[in-house]
């Protein structure tokens, strides 16, 4: 049973089909619901137990106490492997994985992400301020 050019029919029908390629930078890829992307830190929820620091395989998280029951988190994204173990470890759900995956940077220092503590810890757990260090120097860093 020999058939030279067996794939000929398949390839010819491909001419009339849409290419399977996703034109990535122009067409964004939708990540699945449970995708493990960039980690988000919600400062008011943090109790400073530092379990995440202990379990992080690459030691990319640093939690610092900046005031009374106020904590800020520092992520070295160049070391993070996006395993989201910290999300599982956190007893208070202060950490969560987002669907953000476009994290490549040309400048090394932009890979350091600091989630500052809210000025008043009692206020609503709204979106925390997120800054790269050069735009606003880290407190205590």
């Amino acid at each position: 049973m020999i058939h030279p050019g067996k794939m000929a029919r398949e390839v010819l029908t491909s001419l009339f089909r849409k290419p399977a390629t996703v034109l990535y930078p122009y067409v964004k890829v939708q990540m699945p619901d449970r995708f493990r992307g960039k980690i988000k830190f919600t400062s008011p929820l943090c109790i400073g137990c530092k379990l995440c620091m202990r379990d992080c395989p690459t030691n990319c998280i640093t939690i610092t106490k900046v005031g009374d029951k106020q904590f800020q988190a520092e992520f070295d994204l160049d070391r993070c492997i996006y395993c989201a173990q910290c999300v599982d470890t956190c007893p208070k759900k202060a950490l969560e994985a987002t669907a953000e995956y476009e994290l490549a940077q040309l400048q090394h220092d932009k890979l350091k992400v600091i989630f500052h503590a809210e000025p008043t810890p009692a206020s609503s757990p709204a979106a925390p301020a997120e800054h790269a260090p050069q735009s606003q120097p880290a407190i205590g860093a």
Partner: peptide, 25 residues
């Protein structure tokens, strides 16, 4: 090209089930 195109179906399934395409964790 064809084998890898079809492989995408498994990769997408893995991403949906585990949260990533490789290193499923």
């Amino acid at each position: 090209m064809y084998a890898w195109r079809d492989r995408e179906a498994v990769m997408d399934t893995l991403a949906a089930l585990t949260g990533n395409r490789v290193n499923y964790g």
